[in-house]
Design a protein around this nucleic acid. Structure first.
Lengths: 204, 204
DNA sequence: ACGACCATACCAACCGGTTGGTATGTTTGT
DNA sequence: ACAAACATACCAACCGGTTGGTATGGTCGT
């Protein structure tokens, strides 16, 4: 049997925690969703916190594969790859709410102050994903020959900020359309950054 | 006695829930932080859920007063008021992490799927706050005589998306500087929207 | 003025159910 | 045979919520 209990528990964690949040998800919930017993759970994870850290890593692995295999990498021009990433994120919003939201974005809100191990695991996941954008952004900067007052890592993190915030708005409004609007603004911002001379700081 | 038990519980809710999250915050936690007994709690709130809904409203009232009294409204030009709002948000980031983050943004992540009453209360709070920006944005559109492909409500919600996402990144990285960077990007975007002809959709 | 009446505000003790976690098996793969 | 992979049974602590009760202060008829 390849899909072992451990993997079933991790899969269950992704969906259940994204729907209910980390604290509200009990170990029993996870076991029921995974179809395993508590004994199996504590055989593979020494605590609920340990599961959360493993789930964050598992989430990174899964999404890493998803984005690595996405078609936007095929674009020749760096800016097209960056905008292709944004379009790809927008396309994912078609799925249902608990399916397109972010596991680590949800967990870190509950754990940042009380559980450093989970917080750091979430930070690694977000930073790692943002990092995959930096090379293309830097290449686009070179392609356009601009000398922007911002850096590639900073813009990469900004895209994540918009997406994480869009998820929150989508949850509040119980629909994805507001998130799609936010992604549109993000796309327009990136287009503008590469389509014209940088504006000077506006200070009245 | 002016500061009654009810108000002490609500004040405690704002800080404790922002630090620990909604589910991880027990009624006993709230009572201990507020210095009241459980009897007092359930006298004023018929359930923990009821407290959460009331806390979201209380949060709206508090932040509403804060932003209504903020100095950026004094600017003559509408765009200066919009940018002044952004700068004001950035200034608030100086405070400590649990102090500058958003109660309803935290709660809605845990409640959107399992607790519609809390979700709707959070949505009202976010929408209400975003709405306070719309008049200035519309006035800025008129001032500049532009006909943008986006609407004032959409841009107002986008600002909230950036801020909510910035809070998540700040929690993950355990520091406010990444949030400040995001707000800088947001400011640059708004400046660009009003400082040049709109770019056409970029489609390779 | 004054007790009868009553609503509000609050309290300490308690309840049944759930929690994360453990102790002790039993099954399975090699 | 033997360890890793699972299952069963169980526990102490904690959970949200209820209980029966007290203290306070306002309102009413008289």
């Amino acid at each position: 049997m390849k899909s072992s209990a451990k993997e079933k528990i991790l899969d269950a964690a992704l969906s259940v925690i994204r729907a209910k949040g980390y604290s509200a998800t009990s170990v029993d919930d996870l076991c029921a969703a995974a179809g395993v017993t508590k004994g199996a759970f504590f055989h593979h994870f020494k605590s609920k916190e340990d599961l959360a850290v493993a789930a964050a890593q598992y989430w990174s692995d899964m999404t890493g594969k998803l984005f690595a295999a996405a078609p936007y990498h095929a674009h020749e021009r760096p800016l097209d790859r960056v905008l292709g990433y944004v379009d790809f994120r927008k396309a994912i919003l078609q799925r249902s709410l608990p399916e397109f939201t972010c596991l680590v974005g949800t967990m870190v809100q509950e754990a940042y102050d009380s559980n450093p191990a989970i917080r750091d695991a979430c930070a690694r996941s977000i930073n790692g994903h943002a990092h995959t954008l930096e090379a293309d952004i830097d290449a686009a900067i070179n392609e356009f020959g601009i000398e922007p007052p911002w850096t590639a890592p900073s813009l990469a993190l900004f895209t994540q900020s918009v997406l994480q915030g869009a998820f929150i708005l989508a949850k509040a409004k119980n629909g994805a359309s507001v998130a799609a609007d936010c992604v549109d603004h993000l796309r327009r911002y990136i287009e503008m950054l590469f389509s014209q001379p940088q504006v000077k700081e506006y200070a009245p």
